[in-house]
């Protein structure tokens, strides 16, 4: 029988204290991110230490455990700890691969959390572009309508396209069925419109096509972003639950040292 250092030995307690300190630091990263305005050092540096100490704490806690699961609370704590470490490693691997892939696939990437905000601007932009091309209400006293570039059936078709196809697509993206979901179908659709519209409207039409393309890219961006950060939905809550169990485990262990 091999004798390992037990959690109750001075070495075991030391590793427990060191491990707990590291775990609290790891959890503090969340607070650091929510306090971006504070001068607590660069978040990038915090993340680097989060990763380095996250690796280091694994052997520390395993040694602290004495290679045994212990009772229900300590075993639960250990299982949650291992899940946190495993999910962290999974996230770290994703972070090594997806960002570069994202830059390659989405040349027009943006801040993912602001896609909806930016899309609202795009919808307004599309509406203004079309309004500039087609005649407005004849009763409108503004002389702008007199400068309408697209008139007649093409104007009606362009207006109908914006309202029933482009705008819903910009609003909901891939969530709805739309020919604009496909780059190929989108290209066919816009080429057909281009053939109907006068040449001086083609620049505006290209802007609309560009907006549809951005929506397509940002849908992909949102999907990759969810993939890139979705593991945190597991990693963060489990970390907090593990910390709660850890504190209870420590209090009880200290009482019966």
């Amino acid at each position: 029988m091999v004798s390992y250092p037990r959690a109750s030995s001075w070495f075991g307690v030391l590793t427990g204290l060191v491990g707990a300190a590291i775990i609290f630091f790891e959890i503090a990263l969340w607070g650091r991110k929510r306090r971006r305005g504070q001068r607590w050092g660069p978040t990038k540096l915090w993340l680097w230490w989060h990763i380095v100490l996250g690796w280091a704490v694994l052997p520390v806690i395993v040694v602290h455990s004495g290679f045994a699961w212990g009772g229900m609370v300590s075993a639960t704590t250990m299982i949650l700890f291992l899940l946190v470490i495993a999910s962290g490693i999974y996230g770290l691997l994703l972070q090594q691969w997806i960002p570069q892939r994202l830059l390659e696939l989405i040349p027009d990437e943006t801040v993912a959390t602001q896609i909806d905000y930016a899309i609202e601007k795009h919808r307004t932009e599309a509406r203004l572009i079309v309004e500039e091309l087609v005649p407005r209400d004849p009763n409108d006293p503004s002389p702008v309508w007199m400068r309408a570039i697209v008139t007649g059936v093409p104007a009606l078709r362009l207006q109908e396209f914006r309202e029933n196809t482009l705008d819903p697509y910009l609003n909901f993206g891939r969530k709805m069925k739309s020919p604009l979901n496909s780059r190929q179908e989108s290209s066919v659709l816009f080429n057909r419109l281009r053939a109907e519209l006068p040449e001086n409207a083609h620049v505006s039409l290209a802007k609309l096509e560009r907006l549809a393309d951005l929506r397509r890219q940002w849908d992909d961006h949102a999907r990759l972003h969810a993939f890139l950060h979705g593991w945190l939905l597991f990693h963060a809550p489990i970390s907090v639950a593990m910390a709660i169990f850890m504190v209870f485990h420590a209090i009880k262990a200290l009482k019966y040292w």
Binding site: A7, A68, W69, G70, G71, M72, V73, S74, F248, H249, K252, A253
Partner: peptide, 9 residues
């Protein structure tokens, strides 16, 4: 019960 906090049976 102290059983859940015990570090083993």
């Amino acid at each position: 019960s102290d059983r859940p906090y015990s570090h083993g049976p």
